[in-house]
Simulated scan of single mutants.
Amino acid sequence: MDPATFELSLEQQFQMRLVEESLNKMSHEQALDLLLQASRLLMVKDNVIRDLMRRVPL
């Protein structure tokens, strides 16, 4: 597996910069809320991928 495959694309790097700038303007509570939302979405994404993998015939 090529490690470069997991690097962020230029568009993703730009998006990360925008998120970073937004976080610098947020209160601590807002940043924690965003972190919780992002964590939940990552878990949902994991569940979707897991479900899709179960449905793929091998």
Rank of each mutant, 00 (worst) to 15 (best):
Val56Tyr: 07
Asp2Trp: 02
Pro57Glu: 13
Arg40Gly: 07
Ala4Leu: 14
Gln13Val: 03
Glu20Ile: 07
Phe6Val: 12
Ile49Gln: 05
Pro3Asp: 06
Val44Ala: 10
Leu32Phe: 04
Thr5Gly: 05
Val19Glu: 09
Pro57Tyr: 11
Gln13Thr: 08
Glu20Ser: 12
Asp51Pro: 00
Asp33Thr: 00
Leu18Lys: 14
Arg17Val: 03
Asn24Leu: 13
Met43Cys: 04
Leu34Ile: 08
Asp33Gly: 01
Met1Pro: 06
Leu35His: 15
Leu58Gly: 10
Glu20Asn: 10
Leu23Val: 10
Ser22Cys: 11
Asn24Ile: 05
Leu42Tyr: 05
Phe6Cys: 14
Glu29Val: 00
Ser27Leu: 01
Phe6Leu: 13
Val19Phe: 01
Phe6Arg: 14
Pro57Asp: 08
Ala38Val: 15
Leu18Glu: 15
Met1Asp: 09
Leu35Trp: 15
Leu23Glu: 12
Asp46Val: 00
Gln12Tyr: 04
Arg40Phe: 11
Thr5Trp: 10
Ser39Ile: 06
Glu29Arg: 01
Arg55Asp: 02
Glu11Asn: 03
Lys25Trp: 04
Thr5Cys: 12
Leu10Pro: 07
Gln37Asn: 00
Leu32Gly: 05
Met53Ser: 14
Glu20Gly: 01
Thr5Pro: 03
Leu18Phe: 13
Leu35Glu: 14
Asp33Ala: 07
Ile49Thr: 08
Met26Gly: 03
Leu34Tyr: 10
Leu18Gly: 05
Asn47Val: 11
Leu36Gly: 07
Leu18Pro: 02
Phe6Lys: 12
Asp46Lys: 08
Leu8Cys: 05
Glu21Met: 08
Ala31Val: 06
Leu34Met: 15
Gln15Thr: 04
Glu7Cys: 09
Glu7Arg: 11
Val44Thr: 13
Arg50Phe: 13
Val48Gly: 06
Gln30Val: 02
Glu7Pro: 00
Gln12Ser: 02
Val19Thr: 11
Leu10Met: 10
Leu52Ser: 14
Asn47Gln: 14
Phe14Lys: 10
Ser39His: 12
Ser39Cys: 08
Leu52Gly: 05
Glu29Lys: 00
Val48Cys: 02
Ser9Trp: 02
Glu29Trp: 02
Lys25Pro: 01
Asn47Gly: 13
Arg50Tyr: 08
Leu18His: 12
Leu10Val: 08
Asp33Ser: 05
Asp33Pro: 05
Glu11Gln: 09
Glu20Arg: 08
Ser39Lys: 15
Asp2Cys: 08
Leu42Val: 12
Met1Cys: 10
Leu52Tyr: 07
Val48Gln: 07
Asp46Glu: 06
Ser27Glu: 04
Lys25Gln: 11
Gln30Ile: 03
Ala4Asp: 14
Arg50Leu: 11
Leu8Pro: 06
Ser39Leu: 15
Phe6Trp: 15
Val56His: 06
Leu42Ser: 13
Ser22Ile: 04
Leu52Pro: 07
Asn24Ser: 07
Leu34Val: 11
His28Tyr: 07
Leu32Ile: 05
Ala4Glu: 15
Gln12His: 04
Met1Val: 14
Leu8His: 09
Met16Leu: 13
Lys25Leu: 04
Pro57Arg: 11
Glu7Lys: 09
Ser9Gly: 03
Val56Cys: 06
Ser27Pro: 00
Val44His: 13
Asn47Thr: 12
Leu32Cys: 10
Arg55Trp: 03
Arg17Pro: 00
Asn47Pro: 00
